[in-house]
């Protein structure tokens, strides 16, 4: 479980997060939605401590991020996996080395165990036969899936994904969504996903928060979102004709 209490974050005099509260439970896929530029990425990076927040606190199962010393913070981080919006793959390493990087650093698995683990993770994201390639040799969507494989390699307790299925075709996007939901439930992870994709919201949104201009404007589940009358949500979700039709049928 991750508890977020009233966090604020500014860059210079531009306040991006203006007091957000949320509780992300384990074993379910928690979604952050909001317009481009609303602060989703800043929120996710604040959660993992890549941005130092100005006030508020973030508590991982009783461990407040702000009060951890270096060593405790590092050990908490070995329990985290993260997929960056821009993938952030290590471009000098092969796909297999990317996926096994954290294992090489922190586990005492044998070479063949690590290789098996990498293959397993790559197969889960539908990417067999790329282990020996370099990131630059893969398409954008394939790179995204490698980033997901890398994030889950250590069986993290906490998984953070910044738009994991942007740039993927609808079919692969659903495969990724289902994968994230499956591993979250199977391993009891606490998963937080930033997304624009309304399909994901409806398919896997166990708990959703909607960020508007740095504030939480709505929260609820994937079912709630189809029935809510909140004007902000209606405005955000039903901006496409398709979803207007879906809402009409509901």
């Amino acid at each position: 479980m991750i508890e977020v209490n009233d966090i604020h974050k500014s860059f210079g005099d531009h306040e991006v997060l203006k007091g957000i509260d949320a509780t992300f439970y384990k074993g379910q896929t928690n979604l952050i939605i909001g317009q481009s530029g609303s602060g989703k990425t800043v929120f996710l990076k604040s959660l993992v401590g890549l941005h130092d927040i100005d006030s508020g606190d973030i508590v991982y199962n009783g461990r407040a991020l702000g009060s951890l010393n270096n060593k405790e913070r590092k050990s908490l981080r070995t329990e985290m996996g993260m997929v960056f919006q821009g993938n952030a793959l290590f471009d000098s390493l092969t796909i297999e080395e990317n996926v096994t990087f954290a294992l090489n650093m922190f586990s005492d698995m044998s070479l063949s165990e690590k290789r098996d683990r990498a293959n397993f993770c790559l197969e889960r994201v539908n990417l067999p036969n790329v282990a020996k390639k370099f990131p630059s040799e893969l398409s954008g969507g394939m790179q995204k899936r490698v980033a997901i494989a890398r994030a889950i390699s250590m069986n993290p307790k906490y998984l953070f994904c910044d738009e994991p299925n942007s740039g993927l075709d609808p079919k692969t996007a659903i495969v990724i969504d289902k994968l994230l939901q499956e591993i979250t439930e199977e391993f009891g992870m606490t998963t937080v996903i930033n997304t624009h994709d309304m399909n994901s919201v409806i398919e896997i949104g166990a708990y959703i928060i909607f960020i508007k201009e740095g504030k939480k404007a709505w929260q609820g589940t994937g079912d709630d979102i189809l029935n809510t009358d909140s004007p902000e949500i209606v405005d955000f979700v039903y901006s496409s004709e398709l979803f207007k039709k879906i809402r009409g049928e509901h």
């Binding site: 985290m80 821009g86 290590f90 990087f101 954290a102 922190f106």
Partner: peptide
């Protein structure tokens, strides 16, 4: 700039 350094940090690597 490609966030590879951030990725290391989140993994718990210095």
């Amino acid at each position: 700039v490609s966030e590879q350094i951030d990725a290391l940090e989140v993994m718990g690597v210095n």
